[in-house]
């Protein structure tokens, strides 16, 4: 598997605060790369650096060998990187269909897409939102809105999908459904980087996991190795549990 995304020596300052401190990582084509860490570890900031909401203070972000650091989010979207938002942000007064159509119209290759409506319907079918297509987004349940967030991003035709806590807050049935959906997305050939606090989900889904703490990478490896890593246990539970 070739490397799709490569970050090297990423640093992001907000005034005196170093949110991301010298992080290097990569995501291979077609894998699910998990990102965990305690609150404030810099996970979301790292996502925002990759998707272009922030530009890094220093460091490289290479996507398919080309630099995407400092590009605006709409430009990274056109390159093939699409992110979901941690706090769901549907276009509330639009129908579910139109929400997804925005991604279809303006996402990667959107201006060259001949039949936007057919693509939109396909995505709605794929994500299981088709029965709710005509409802206003604001009337969906939380699970529905989280699913819409994923559907909309998929409509933008990403090669790399950044999922920011799409499972947290769901009930066990919904968690199982969303985990299944994530596997199906990967089966479409889309690489996924996901931030998640629900350990059961991320341990089962991820091919590899990276752990951040205070903006630094403290561990990286397969889920099994991560679960036994003393530095990780210390970061989550404190020193006495590490041994």
């Amino acid at each position: 598997m070739s490397v799709l995304l490569e970050c090297d020596g990423l640093i992001k300052h907000f005034g005196g605060l170093v949110a991301v401190n010298d992080v290097s990582c990569h995501a291979r084509d077609g894998e699910i790369f998990g990102l965990i860490g305690p609150n404030g570890a810099g996970k979301t900031t790292l996502f925002r650096l990759i998707s272009g909401v922030y530009s890094p203070t220093t460091g490289y972000i290479l996507f398919k060998g080309r630099s995407v650091a400092g590009l605006k989010p709409h430009a990274t979207c056109h390159r093939g990187i699409v992110s979901t938002h941690q706090i769901v942000r549907p276009f509330r007064e639009m129908s579910v269909f139109d929400n997804v159509r925005v991604g279809a119209e303006f996402g990667r290759r959107g201006d060259r897409r001949r039949d936007v409506n057919a693509w939109t319907r396909e995505i709605l079918e794929f994500t299981g939102l088709a029965p709710q297509a005509d409802r206003l987004a604001k009337n969906l349940t939380l699970a529905g809105r989280k699913r819409l967030e994923i559907a909309r991003s998929l409509a933008a035709d990403p090669e790399l999908l950044l999922l920011d806590e799409v499972i947290a807050g769901l009930n066990p049935t919904e968690i199982a459904q969303t985990m299944n959906l994530i596997l199906q997305i990967r089966a479409r050939g889309i690489t996924i980087i996901m931030v998640e606090h629900v350990m059961k989900a991320i341990m089962n889904l991820s091919d590899r996991i990276m752990v951040l703490n205070y903006g630094r990478k403290i561990a990286e490896g397969q889920p099994k190795e991560i679960a036994q890593n003393p530095a990780v246990i210390e970061a989550y539970l404190g020193q006495p549990f590490a041994n």
């Binding site: 605006k72 938002h85 276009f91 509330r92 996402g107």
Partner: peptide, 13 residues
């Protein structure tokens, strides 16, 4: 409705 979400989905706001 949401400039950040619009930007994420490829709209040059």
């Amino acid at each position: 409705m949401d400039p950040d979400a619009a930007e994420t989905l490829g709209i040059s706001t």
